[in-house]
Design a protein around this nucleic acid. Sequence first.
RNA 1: GUGGGUGUAGCUCAGUCGGUUAGAGCGCCAGAUUGUGGCUCUGGAGGUCGCCGGUUCGAUUCCGGUCAUCCACCCCA
Length: 404
Amino acid sequence: MIQALRGMKDILPPDNARYEYILRTASAIAKRYGYTYVETPLLEETALFKRSVGESSDIVGKEMYQFIDKGGHDVCLRPEGTAGVVRMFIQNKLDKKGGLHRFFYHGPMFRYERPQKGRLRQFHQFGCESFGEASVYEDFTIIMMVKDIFDALGIGYEILVNSLGCPECMPRYREELVSYLQNIQENLCDDCRRRIATNPIRVLDCKNETCQRHLADAPLMSGHLCETCQSDFTTLTRLLTANRLPFRHDPKLVRGLDYYTRTAFEFVSSEIGAQSAIAGGGRYNRLVEFLGGKPTPAVGFALGIERIMELVKMPESAREGYYLGVMEPSALPAVLQAGHRLRQNHTVHTEYAKKSLKAHLKAADRLGARYCAVVGEEELSQNAIWVKDMETKEERRLALDALG
RNA sequence: GUGGGUGUAGCUCAGUCGGUUAGAGCGCCAGAUUGUGGCUCUGGAGGUCGCCGGUUCGAUUCCGGUCAUCCACCCCA
């Protein structure tokens, strides 16, 4: 038997309903915030991700589905969505056009990781990217949008926020942190010693207790923000408080992707295991320039659809549409015609086989149809159809032509 | 990439200290006086016991490998 590749899943009933519901809900809310739908290719030049996500990240370093195509090009399946949208933004010269541009997208992402709860090799994200707005109010607005989406889906969460600083203050801080870490490195675990060179900020949230003891006095970004970064961050947290968002300042929150600056945020759920991040995002003011465009401030987020699927509470679905069947085979052509008329406005299930009334009712019940309509011996002679409302149990006999 | 758990009917699982026809519940199909669903009862269909190899007279059961899956580390949405 040929089966789906490791870490790749089919989405079928009943989960497909939740997948669709999440997309529908998120898309509707994004539109209300002025975002429009865009789609970018699943396959991009590898260099795009190396430059944007960052060569030092695990995503680029060891998790990409990368290969050389038949034309000799180094390509890979997108591991995330932002890079492609930024490439699209630049390639279509929207950076030169100026003004504000807000886009949303959704679709599969690919990372060659070891699968576990909430982590697949092909997974789906819904994301938004806002270009051209430098104000921290936009960061706030985008967090509100994520909040609206989760509230609409009935999902509980906690919000973690942090400021990662900007090109002015971050490198200064990083230097200070590295020299601090080098002084205590003999006390740190192997992983942390390696991280000093690759990703020093990650050392801060090491789970090793010995490491944590020695990190007690480590410098934090929050104490080293420049004036603008600090005032933006203060503005943001005040707005969140004023709007009663359940946020927590996590000075150790870092983003896995290199392109973030200033605001970083994450929505986490305590109900889905170790992979608790259900949405993450932040500001990335340098990325457009970094990929060859005109410097353009930007902020965005992405949410993980599979992780959210475990949490959504679907609204109760009511019985809907028609079930059509026959007890007399000769009535089938006329019943199918009626079915086609009904389908202009209703969901219709047609059963081709002759069955007992009991079997038809059972089938209609199982399909969740509101009405069960059947032609038997008595109806056939009158050119009629028997219709039962499965909810009110009301029964009627109609002329077959009257149906639809 | 590392560590641990699990693979027996469509689903959830039991079981065989190695030995004739491998079980349950749920689901499915059919009936329970002629044309009335969701409840109940009866009957039925459905399994190469993940795959490959080893040990053995004999393996679904023991051993090895492999694949898949789950959970955690790591990483991240």
